[in-house]
Nucleic acid binder design. Structure first.
Lengths: 144, 144
DNA sequence: TTAGATGCAAACGATTTGCGCGGAA
DNA sequence: TTCCGCGCAAATCGTTTGCATCTAA
C-alpha cells in the first residue's frame, strides 16, 4: 500500500529526472507496473482499473516506449505475439512460461549467465550487453 | 552442397515419418533452412530464391507451423516483431543480437543453463522444459 | 507561453483463417 | 479416390504514426 505508493513516488522522481512530465497517465501506468506480479502487455496495462474505463492504446504505447528508452522499464519477448514489459528496478529475473496456456512464473534462481556478459562483450566487441533467459515447458495443469 | 542435399534428404525422411507429404514447398523450405546461417523469419523464407519468384506467405506459415508442431524446427523470439525459425537438429544455440541494427550472431559458448532444466522441472512441476537465452547489446558498427 | 502528452482515427506488418482446387499417397 | 497441402483473398491483432487538442512546467 503505502509501500507501493512510496515506490511509485520514487519512480516518478526518476521519471522527472529524465525529463518526463508528471501526467495522470504516467502515474497510473507506474502504479500498474509497481503492483504487477509479472511482466505485462500494453493491452493489459491499458485495461487496468487505475485508468477509469481504460486508456487509449496509442497513449500507453508511447508512454511505455518513453519509459523503455529512458531505461525505466524493460521489454521482454516471451513467445506471445504481444511484447511484455516490467520495471527495470527490480533485479534481473528469469522466467518459466507454459507453452500451452501461456502462464508466466518468475524463477527464483541465481541467474547463471550474468558473469558471461563481460566475456561476450570482449569477444564480440558489443557494448551494453544484457540478456534474457526464458524456460518453456508445460505446466502441471496443462499436462492433464 | 552434396552435403546439404544429404541433410535435406534426411530431413525429408524425418518429415515423412511424422506424416508430412513430400511437396515441392516442403522440400524448398527445408533447403532454405539447411543452408541458413541464422534463424529466419517467414518472410525471409518465402522470399528465398529456391521458390521461383516467391512463395505464398500463408503457405509458408502453415508449412513452418507444421514443422514446428512436429518439432523439426524451433521458434525463436528475439525482439523483432516477426518470429524466427531454425532447424532443431543442430545443437542448441544461444544468440547475440544488436538492439540497434538487429544483426544476429550465433554464440559459440557452452550453454550454461542446460543443467538447470531438470532442477526447474522438479521444483515447478513443468515438463518438457527447454530454454532460450539471448544477449542484447550494441554491435561494434552501431557504436560509432 | 510552449514543448511535451493525449485521444482519435487511420496505416502497417505479421500473422491467421476460409475456401476451392490440385496433387501426393 | 481421398485427404493433405497450396494459392488467393480477406480477417485479425498488436503495434505505429499523423494530427489537432490539451496541459504540465
Amino acid at each position: 500500500m503505502s509501500d507501493e505508493s512510496t515506490r511509485v513516488e520514487s519512480l516518478l522522481k526518476e521519471c522527472a529526472a529524465v525529463g518526463l512530465r508528471r501526467t495522470t497517465a504516467l502515474e497510473a501506468c507506474l502504479r500498474v507496473f509497481a503492483s504487477a506480479e509479472q511482466p505485462m502487455t500494453l493491452q493489459q496495462i491499458a485495461a487496468a482499473p487505475v485508468f477509469g474505463v481504460s486508456c487509449d492504446p496509442a497513449t500507453i504505447y508511447r508512454l511505455v516506449s518513453r519509459l523503455e528508452e529512458r531505461r525505466i522499464v524493460r521489454r521482454i519477448g516471451f513467445h506471445s505475439r504481444a511484447a511484455h514489459y516490467c520495471l527495470r528496478e527490480s533485479s534481473h529475473q528469469d522466467y518459466l512460461i507454459c507453452r500451452d496456456c501461456g502462464s508466466v512464473e518468475v524463477l527464483d534462481i541465481a541467474c547463471p549467465v550474468e558473469h558471461l556478459e563481460k566475456q561476450i562483450a570482449e569477444e564480440s566487441g558489443f557494448s551494453d550487453i544484457e540478456h534474457e533467459l526464458e524456460f518453456f515447458g508445460r505446466c502441471a495443469t496443462c499436462q492433464s
